[in-house]
């Protein structure tokens, strides 16, 4: 009997809840809008506050971007808050953005870990009068006012595939793909583009297995590459996506002395990959310059608040010419940079 009563009251409670919820999120929106009016006044006496949120903090790639973003803040006279989760976790990132909204920043530029998960919180930011843009990885395009891409995903993926074939020297043979994590959207986009390039233009190339996850760790990439070499003795080339993966792959090649047999091409930072580039265990590292991406994000965010839209071919100081797609909000920083043994020493990231 007791149990029954308990469940009845439980059901009743849920019924009560379900009845009252929908209408009320609307009223709260209204109250949020009221708050907005007073906020804009607050901003008048201070500098612009631009929040740049990376996927996570504490990895070299996003550190380089941070340097660029902070430099831009100094150059352009705006306050830059660069903060992100310590793990690439969507839930943590949402919390950080919520806290930024409480801080009443003017712009939030975010590199989403999981685009869909940010949609509600970015909507909320917009309702509060905060400008929302994305960088590094696209967010929900119906919400952001600007979408800053380091690169055109399609071109990038194809470029990596093409470079690999070029370096192998023949368009017949077996290759493998390493990736940072199976669920990383941008890595998946590049891999898909690379695969398309191979299918369309190099039918003689055979992919031995599906992309292999390396948990964003060099050591795992190293071990998996060793296993790959053993499993597929005819392997000619490896494409490694995510910044630690090419290093691990190259290390395995280096140790087994297979520099001339297996070609490795990947997305690594020049400073980290220099020792591997020098002894040819890594053939080419292909990436963009993340510090410029950080700089560009802050520069365009500032322009956006001031009402200036980016123009195709516009020259941004310290970054270079940018490309703007037809929709007027997708900005592409430029073509990828190839880092090789010759030029890798010239960069400090």
């Amino acid at each position: 009997m007791k149990k029954l009563k308990f469940f009845v009251s439980l059901l009743f409670l849920f019924g009560l809840l379900a009845g009252c919820v929908s209408q009320n999120s609307a009223t709260s929106n209204k109250s949020a809008n009221n708050g907005q009016a007073s906020e804009t006044k607050n901003d008048a006496n201070g500098k612009l506050k631009i929040a740049v949120v990376p996927k996570l903090v504490g990895i070299p790639y996003f550190n380089a971007a941070e340097k660029g973003a902070l430099q831009a803040g100094k150059d352009l006279g705006v306050d830059v808050i660069y903060t992100g989760p310590t793990e690439a976790d969507a839930a943590q990132q949402v919390k950080i953005i919520e806290d930024l909204i409480s801080q009443k920043v003017d712009v939030i530029a975010v590199a989403p870990n999981d685009p869909a998960s940010l949609t509600p919180v970015l909507k909320k930011a917009k309702e509060q009068g905060i400008k929302v843009i994305d960088w590094d990885t696209p967010a929900d395009q119906s919400i952001v006012e600007l979408s800053i891409h380091q690169i055109d995903d399609e071109i990038y993926g194809r470029h990596i595939a093409k470079t690999l074939i070029e370096k192998i020297g023949t368009d017949k043979g077996e290759i493998a793909i390493l990736t940072g994590g199976l669920s990383a959207a941008n890595l998946n986009a590049w891999i898909d583009a690379a695969k398309k390039e191979l299918e369309e233009n190099y039918p003689g190339i055979k992919l031995v297995t599906d992309k292999i996850a390396t948990d964003e760790k060099q050591q795992v990439a190293y071990q998996k590459t060793l296993d790959l070499i053993k499993s597929y003795p005819n392997l000619k080339g490896i494409m490694a996506f995510s910044t630690p993966a090419p290093l691990g792959a190259a290390q395995a090649i280096q140790e087994k002395g297979l520099q001339n047999k297996i070609t490795v091409v990947g997305t690594a930072l020049p400073k980290d990959s220099k020792p591997f580039l020098e002894d040819q265990s890594l053939d080419v590292a292909i990436l963009w310059e993340p510090n410029k991406l950080g700089y560009l994000t802050v520069a365009l965010a500032k322009d956006l608040v001031e009402g200036k839209k980016p123009q195709d071919g516009q020259n941004i100081d310290n970054v270079g010419k940018i490309e703007v797609k037809e929709d007027g909000k997708t900005v592409i920083m430029g073509p990828p940079t190839d880092f090789t043994a010759e030029n890798a020493g010239n960069y400090d990231f």
């Binding site: 903090v57 504490g58 550190n63 310590t86 630690p244 220099k274």
Partner: peptide, 16 residues
């Protein structure tokens, strides 16, 4: 972990 990440900023050191 926090201190290590704060001090190193995740900076990777290679064998060069």
């Amino acid at each position: 972990n926090g201190i290590v990440l704060y001090v190193t900023n995740g900076q990777y050191l290679n064998s060069t």
